[in-house]
Write a protein that binds this DNA or RNA. Sequence first.
DNA 1: GGATCCGTTGTAGCT
DNA 2: AAGCTACAACGGATC
Length: 548
Amino acid sequence: MAASSGAAGVWFRKCLRLHDNEALVKACAFSEVVPFFILDPHFNRSAVGVNRFAFLLQSLQDLDAQLRLRGSRLLVFQGRPHEVLADLFNGKAGVRLSRLYFEKDTEPYARSRDVQVECLAKEHRVSIESFSGHTLLDIDATVANPKFKPPISMKSMQSIMTAAGPIRKPFDIPKIPPLNIEGFEVPKISNIYSEVPTSTGFPGGEQEALSRLRHVCADADYVCQFEKPKTASTGRPGCPWEPSTTGLSPYLKFGCLSVRTAWHAIDQCIRGKRHSEPPQSLHGQMLFREMFYLLGASVPNFDRNEGNSMCKPIPWGDNPVFLQAWQEGRTGYPFIDALMRQLNQTGYMHHLGRHAVACFLTRGDLWQSWTCGRDVFDKLLLDADWALNNGNWLWLAGVAPFSAPYFRIYDPCPGPNSSLNAEQTGEFVKHYVPELKGMPSKYLYKPWTAPLAEQKKAGCIIGQDYPKPIVDHKLAREENLARFKAALNGQVLPEKFGCATSDPGPMCSSLSKGRGKRAEVATLNTEPDERKQRRWGKGPKDDTLAGG
DNA sequence: GGATCCGTTGTAGCT
DNA sequence: AAGCTACAACGGATC
């Protein structure tokens, strides 16, 4: 097989697709093409939840199947990329590459990996070419423009788009040369994880991605009327586990779906019709994605509390008990807990749900650093994306210049007028917090206010079958507002403002005596912590494209 | 340089 | 039911 001249390798990393794949197109100008993926131990079980890993493997399976339909196949190697690639450049494993093509990746880990790979290729006299494809803009080229300023508003983002000119059309799938090599199959999730995937709603892969996109675009009204704040954070009636949005974000994250293909498909839908506009429209969601990619690529320390021009210094607390309760959905706030349990179970959460839980963890209630929540999302979300995740957490923690004013705090018990779009049937909460199944809807979001008799009748004693609220929202909110304000003035408020205690004790809003006994565990950490529409739509799922 | 406006998605209470 | 106001009051952009 491998002729002496060597083959052209197509290294799939993101961009797990055949459509609109420039690296594939370029490689297929040669007669021998080796499509491959490297399972990098950097993305291991402690970094990636089982659901996202399963999604990745499904995507690889699909990619392999599509390649086989065309007489080729996907080789899956396991190991550190530079070691695997050294073997491929040397001609071990029955393959010898003399050229390497891949899509650029602007995440910090990917950049350092790729720099290493470029050196290696030079040593082996392997020619390398990479292409911008994961984003609408060429991120590096945009940032390199001397006039570039990090965009912190939709307005500035739109002017960057305008200056960049029209978005190029997707590439067609090229004719792919045959490949006959045995082995290097896509592994099974059970060979890698002892846990079993629990997410069923999002099968990975390009075919699923394209079919979802078709489904979304089949309903032009839906696309034309799409306004993010009007989509329901609590899923669809009858199926609270189903997103009320497009559900495309995991596919964009892995590049199962080309962002250009999606952009033009949506463009087709809205062209010549009355339609919603950025920032709330679907195109608007995609512009936020670009914005965060630009920020991630241009702002030093974008993922940190210190040295980050997009992050104001706030003396966040350090309370592992709070963090864990939040992470596991045991805060005693049913809406928050339902959302967090949904994340753990399914790897998905509506964008507005992310707002609710992120605000709750940070400036709203628990006063924990956004980086802690960021890490949880980074591991568990199917659509976890470095730039978007960091950008959204900065936004929600209120520390970024693009954040909403810090004093706008979400109520963790959203009522019918809440912008969080909680349904009032309680279907969503009851689905993910089944302890509360019997609770009358008037108490569902605040079950601790139910009289004991009602709690007994519902089979759910608060403090026993379901936790008491971990903090008193009203008080925590007040104190956090004061602390945030002080921090903006360069002050750290004295001890009496500590809202954090690891043992919330018998705390109901009606019982709480307030500040007196609450400060013992609270650590006002002055050292920055861096330890490490249609609302009820008929058809399609959709989701947060900006997805962080 | 000061005033004003605006920022994808706040909430509660009133009319 | 939609729209107003009070609440408390940031900071970047624009005039």
